[in-house]
Write a protein that binds this DNA or RNA. Sequence first.
DNA 1: GTTGTATGAATGAAGG
DNA 2: CCTTCATTCATACAAC
Lengths: 208, 208
Amino acid sequence: MAAQVMTDEQMELLRRQISAYATICERLVEMHRAVTAQQDAFSGMRLSGLYADPLVAYGGPNISARQRWTPTHMQLQTLESIFYQGNGTPSKQKIKEIVAELSQHGQISEANIYNWFQNRRARSKRKKTAAAPSNSESESDAKSLVEKTGQTEKTAAYSNLSPSVYDRSPASDGSQGMYAVPESSKLSGGSDGMPVYGISMSTPSKQT
Amino acid sequence: MAAQVMTDEQMELLRRQISAYATICERLVEMHRAVTAQQDAFSGMRLSGLYADPLVAYGGPNISARQRWTPTHMQLQTLESIFYQGNGTPSKQKIKEIVAELSQHGQISEANIYNWFQNRRARSKRKKTAAAPSNSESESDAKSLVEKTGQTEKTAAYSNLSPSVYDRSPASDGSQGMYAVPESSKLSGGSDGMPVYGISMSTPSKQT
DNA sequence: GTTGTATGAATGAAGG
DNA sequence: CCTTCATTCATACAAC
């Protein structure tokens, strides 16, 4: 195939994307460090003040209420946090607590929570199923970005964490074999996977 | 403007960089969530999702736009045939077969098939419903039907994004190369089941 | 390049 | 829990 042409606009866009990711990663690393550093002391999230509300403030044009429940960002975060605690099984009691907590941020019901957890887990499981099974094909560079490190204890996630589109090949016919992007980079998609505590951001193949 | 030319190699590299970032971000998000989840558990299940991570809240509109699958003609034909056969219920086993078959003609995944059938059926049903409006029920009212108060916030995908991130000028950082990417991102390698993502280089078209 | 439309994908909810 | 439905979002592509 001949060289492709990109317009300045496209290149600009690419640059911005990369820059954005770079920045995000930067901040993430900082946050993570800060958080882990204070894990023992639990002195609260001092960091939260820095980038709390202003950023998440949604100047959304007020739309009329919708039928089905839509978790707010805050609610979603909380839910995911709980989900990650490993308590995959939301007990009745627990749900009530959660509802009590989340109702501060918007309408919510126990059924919502229940459904959410159910769907959440189902989705996670499905992703794993989609993992490459007996794929011993001649995959030259088949190294994974982050090897599953010392994961805590929860679901023994496999090695695949592809968000949704897991299939990909070297752009065979070039028609649509493009790339996709993880949802979690956006905001909600939260892909489930393994805890991965000690992934090294600087070493490609192994973690320190 | 004079369009610049990139070789395939360069483009590939770019994609990999972005892909790497996407993956890293994803992992970091997971880590952060996991850690914070631990914290919450530590503090006796307070679940205060009071703070919001910028990254989680980061709802970049077109940064990290995912690419959606587009069936080829042959794939579409096959799918339609199967659909027409009456297999309104695509079993998992069937899906695998279909995937095996259709992958000959282009990229495809089980999820694609699954979605396709779901959408297909929904669409058919909807058309029938629309075609048979036996009951005259002018449900065209757009009044607020529920009292779901403030939680109306929708995806907010197009509203908030860290200014500091997005507005960051692409080349203003003075990086030498256009794509100044930290070493950490070099650990890309995402292959195998990796997200494999890419960017939509199309202009940020906003949905209507 | 803008707007409209078709449709792939995401997800809350219900059924079994 | 697992499967299925319904609704909505977002994007590829067409029409202008």
